[in-house]
Design a protein around this nucleic acid. Sequence first.
DNA 1: AAATATTTGCAACGATGTTTCTTTTTTTTA
DNA 2: TAAAAAAAAGAAACATCGTTGCAAATATTT
Lengths: 139, 139
Amino acid sequence: MDSIVHILKQNNLSVTEGRRRILSLFLSSNGALAHADIEKNTGSHFDRVTVYRTLQSFVDKGIIHTIPTSDNSIKYALCKDECGEGHHHDHHVHLVCSRCGNTFCLDDVVTPAVKLPHEYIVQQVEVVVKGICRSCNHK
Amino acid sequence: MDSIVHILKQNNLSVTEGRRRILSLFLSSNGALAHADIEKNTGSHFDRVTVYRTLQSFVDKGIIHTIPTSDNSIKYALCKDECGEGHHHDHHVHLVCSRCGNTFCLDDVVTPAVKLPHEYIVQQVEVVVKGICRSCNHK
DNA sequence: AAATATTTGCAACGATGTTTCTTTTTTTTA
DNA sequence: TAAAAAAAAGAAACATCGTTGCAAATATTT
């Protein structure tokens, strides 16, 4: 069976044109995608609302995760296998390339532990690095 | 001279009612402020556009800095003295309290160094911690 | 293949942020 | 300190982003 269909079924999502196209985009893209990228690149046109709802359901199911960026726009990227409905485990660093503007998950770079004064409780650490990505650096 | 007026003059900003009120808000608040907080709490009413422009000019001058949050809203907080026009040096960790929702600069907690594979170049590291703030933790 | 459940598209809405232009306020200078 | 020049504020219009309610279309179940 088509791996895209497989992923959708596995997550109890009905298989629709929009979901297949959007998931396919994520599978074939190496960086993170913003809502606008998705709306433009799905081939056929889907309503903005549909895109929002699809992204939301993918996040809920643990198929993709959100990446906060300093310019106030949310990006989305595929999760690794450990994520599932109601629990994400994306403890890696994100890189925003200041040359090409793309955002990447650095899956092998684990977020460093942050030690706060004892009056605080740490629940989750989010690290976004601004820098130059691999492919821009080799040009 | 009034310290608020002093700061404005020092940064080559003309001294206006709006700027004084907004700067005063920052000086008297211990957490970070969102645009909406500012619009509501300046006492007299200022146009939204004025608030946006004031915040922008404060950021440009190095008086305040922005804090990215995962819910896609920008918060602003006072810079320490080393910042100036065109150069910010706010290398501290930010905490978003999941109980009270406020955002704080942890000025004493320096952002940890992040080591990336050698194909990458690191320019800037942004760390946002989700957790419980001091005052919520003591209740 | 029909019945049911789910998803889509559309319209409308609210919040956020920007731009242009005119009026008002602040600063300069004379 | 009054007039001239510069800067900022306010108003209106517009663009983008994200959400909600509802009717039509599409998937899934039986």
